[in-house]
Design a protein around this nucleic acid. Structure first.
Length: 521
RNA sequence: GCCCCCGUCGUCCAGCGGCCCAGGAUCCCACCCUUUCAAGGUGGUGACGCCGGUUCGAAUCCGGUCGGGGGUACCA
């Protein structure tokens, strides 16, 4: 490792949504960069035009923003592009890849392959069946066409893909920051296609070129890319050995590299994030797209904390860690090596803890998007909320804060406090209003609440007095009143709820519920 | 098939030769508190995949085995 401050990168392929596993990789890169005063680059790997979409790219940037992983270089949601080593979308770097390929061709590092996908697939299939000689590895020794063949294919007008020659013997060894020494024999490594027959660059080439061109010092990514390391290491060497990358950059007029840059010197391959069934994370595991977690009312800081702990720990048993602590303590070499299952129950617990610690104003502010129609099913407040709605929300927060694990739960509590014509849960009618103490309790409540002082203490005294008067336990008396006033058997504490709802609305609801109770009795 | 990686409570982590008949968190269960639901408190169930070896001593080191995962694309 050099003394240079690290330059790390997160470079998703923009197809589909940003996945929790990817976010974890992004977070680790982010933490590493912040810890060491380095630079976090965000690059879009859209070399595969058939899969990449602008919509996906945009949603990934928004997701990164929401979860708070700010990048130092790369495109942003507002169209702004930061950093002096762009462009940061590979679809805009085609000229560079072509210039690199021309040089590799001139250097004799590359050979054409005229085989069709069908031919290649047939060849592989036979090897997998144990036919063919030797391992199913593509090597120039057996794959390179003769000059006669090349002449014939060209005469037929066929266009080849281009493969990079890999060494025939020896080994590639990497000292991975999380896995330790990993070694591959070159005879086991296939010659990768670096340019498709349509002239576009493939991942192995584009990714390696950009990492070198943008001065990436540490490649930290998912374990699924571990096996791709030897050929990328090879390309890194090829690009830097004779300053080939610098010539190519100059030729196409892209920003020159910093003179102090060499090539990526370290690798860190992160264990996979899997579902509770230990299978690859997918839609059937519930939430995988991170915007889904926003909709469900998880706090971004909860995700940051939780994801950081998925494969890493500070070692002292602490689990609740704030961002500055994460940055101060995070260490790639302390990352575990085995796959981690994503346990949403534990995430939920973390989230509840953090919600409970929010200030009333902060929590109220965060609840707005769940009430104004942005994320919730229906809009209970205006967007933006009126001052009256906001103060009502601030009044509601202390009643519900300690019983919430997700912000979206406010959608269940809020109607009783924001809506006039409340519906009573039919199940609650059946279980509570239709049974004995209901009518007496509700009628009694109407009576004692009609002229009581409107404060929690006074309501408390009045209702407890009512229970005594009725000769019943307070719980039995309170439950019908709760259903009458909130519409549900589950609600925040009764006196506080009644106080917040207000006398007029409370009495109207009691009157209505009394009728319902009499009818159901 | 071939290459690579991995293997401590259901799950996430701690453990880096004795402090471990394995610790924390989460989940689950019980009890306490209690106006519902929560929150909170107390207690409990629960793991070193297996077999050999090294060593006075192994969850920790070595070998094997079994199991899981990734790759084996003109996807990334």
């Amino acid at each position: 490792m050099s003394d240079l401050t690290p330059r790390v990168r997160f470079c998703p392929a923009p197809s589909g949504w940003l996945h929790v596993g990817s976010v974890r990789a992004a977070l680790y890169n982010f933490l590493h960069a912040r810890r060491h005063g380095g630079t976090f680059v965000f690059r879009i790997e859209d070399t595969d035009a058939t899969r990449a979409t602008d919509e996906s790219m945009h949603s990934m940037m928004e997701a990164m923003r929401w979860i708070g992983l700010d990048w130092d270089e790369g495109p942003d949601v507002d169209g702004e592009i930061r950093g002096a080593h762009g462009p940061y979308r590979q679809s805009e770097r085609g000229a560079l890849y072509a210039a690199v390929v021309r040089r590799l061709v001139d250097a004799g590092e590359v050979y054409p392959d005229f085989r069709s996908s069908e031919e290649l697939e047939a060849w592989r299939a036979s090897h997998r069946r144990g036919e063919g000689e030797g391992p199913p590895v593509v090597k120039a020794a057996t794959f390179e066409h003769t000059p006669e063949e090349i002449a014939r294919f060209e005469a037929e007008g066929r266009v080849p893909s281009l493969r990079l020659r890999t060494p025939d013997d020896g080994a590639f060894v990497v000292d991975d920051l999380v896995r330790g020494e990993v070694r591959w024999e070159w005879e086991q490594i296939s010659d990768p296609v670096i340019q498709r027959s349509d002239g576009s660059a493939t991942y192995p080439l584009a990714n390696s070129v950009d990492d070198v061109a943008q001065g990436i010092t540490l490649i930290c990514r998912g374990e699924d890319l571990l096996s791709v390391t030897p050929r990328q290491g090879l390309i890194h060497d090829l690009l830097t050995r004779d300053r080939l990358i610098d010539e190519a950059l100059a030729e196409v007029g892209m920003p020159a590299r910093d003179p102090s840059w060499t090539q990526p010197e370290a690798f860190a391959h992160l264990p996979m994030v899997v579902g509770m069934d230990r299978k690859k994370l997918s839609k059937r595991h519930g939430s995988v797209a991170i915007q889904e977690f926003r909709r469900k009312g998880f706090l971004p800081e909860t995700l940051r904390n939780f994801l950081a702990l998925l494969g890493w720990s500070p070692g002292d048993g602490r689990e609740r860690l704030e961002d500055d602590e994460l940055i101060a303590l995070f260490d790639l070499s302390a990352v575990g090596r085995s796959a981690a299952a994503f346990d949403e129950d534990k995430l939920l617990s973390f989230n509840g803890d953090r919600i409970r610690d929010l200030s009333v104003e902060d929590l109220a502010g965060r609840l707005v998007e769940h009430l104004d129609g942005t994320l919730g099913e229906r809009a209970l407040v205006d967007s933006p909320p009126t001052e009256a709605q906001m103060s009502r929300l601030v009044g509601l927060v202390p009643l519900i804060q300690e019983r919430m694990q997700r912000l979206d739960e406010v959608e269940n509590y809020a109607p009783a406090f924001f809506i006039d014509d409340l519906e009573i849960d039919p199940d609650a009618v059946d279980r509570v209003l239709s049974k004995p103490p209901a009518v007496d309790s509700i009628a009694g409540a109407r009576r004692v609440l009609s002229d009581v002082d409107w404060s929690v203490d006074a309501i408390d005294t009045a209702l407890r007095g009512l229970a005594e008067e009725l000769g019943s336990g307070f719980g039995r008396v309170a439950q019908p009143i709760r259903v009458a006033v909130t519409g549900s058997t589950v609600s925040p504490p009764l006196f506080e709820s009644i106080e917040l709802i207000g006398r007029e609305r409370t009495l109207v609801r009691l009157e209505h519920a009394e009728g319902v109770a009499r009818a159901a009795a």
